[in-house]
């Protein structure tokens, strides 16, 4: 499914300074029963965000009106666990377009790239700087520049570059997905398949 193009994103960030945030926290399994991709944002971080009677937990960051923005900033090893793309969908559907962390789980990172959420991996030191900047001023603006592959805390000018492979970068910039690419080389795939023994 094609998605919005990603170029330069300038917004405030929502801090979640917890390590090993797994996909069961991002979206618990009991909310995976849809047959269409819609409405997942309502259940993003469901059990951290709501009590069992569905009242909001006041101390959770998404319920704190001080924090808003389209960048989610998480602790090390973000997105570990299950392969459920619903985790990335929930993040996108809630309104985030970018997740920043010092380390991402593999499948989660791929899922994000496939649906138009940009995973930005920064050094542990820079991650700490972002957390401190948001703590000092929740409206602090962060610029994620995909063409230049940089992330900048605008007020202080502190910045760092990040990696993304050339192919995925082009996809994100243009809103293309992998299936568009694969369908274009269909004949090559069919030829390969014809020679497979299994």
């Amino acid at each position: 499914m094609a998605y919005d193009k990603f170029n330069i994103l300038t917004t405030s960030g929502v801090p979640l300074p917890i390590e090993n945030v797994d996909t069961d926290q991002i979206i618990p399994a009991r909310f995976l029963k849809a047959t269409e991709r819609k409405g997942f944002g309502d259940n993003l971080f469901r059990d951290w965000r709501y009590n069992s009677d569905d009242s909001p937990k006041k101390d959770f960051v998404l319920n704190n009106p001080k924090y808003s923005g389209r960048i989610l900033v998480g602790g090390k090893n973000f997105g570990s666990g299950s392969s459920r793309e619903h985790a990335a969908w929930a993040i996108y559907d809630y309104g985030f377009r970018c997740v920043v962390s010092s380390f991402f789980a593999d499948i989660f990172r791929n899922n994000c790239l496939n649906i138009g959420v940009l995973p930005v991996q920064v050094s542990p030191e820079f991650l700490e700087k972002i957390f401190l900047a948001i703590e000092a001023d929740p409206t602090t603006q962060i610029e994620v520049n995909l063409p230049e592959q940089t992330i900048t805390i605008l007020e202080s000018g502190e910045h760092e570059s990040f990696d993304i492979n050339v192919y995925k970068k082009a996809n994100m910039l243009n809103g293309f997905d992998d299936i568009d690419y694969l369908l274009n080389i269909k004949e090559q795939i069919q030829e390969f398949a014809a020679n497979r023994p299994l």
Partner: peptide, 17 residues
């Protein structure tokens, strides 16, 4: 393990990137 976009890729083309 793969995500749903990748499931779609494999259904459509028997390949994954």
């Amino acid at each position: 393990g793969i995500g749903t976009s990748e499931v779609e890729m494999v259904l459509a083309t028997q390949c994954i990137m």
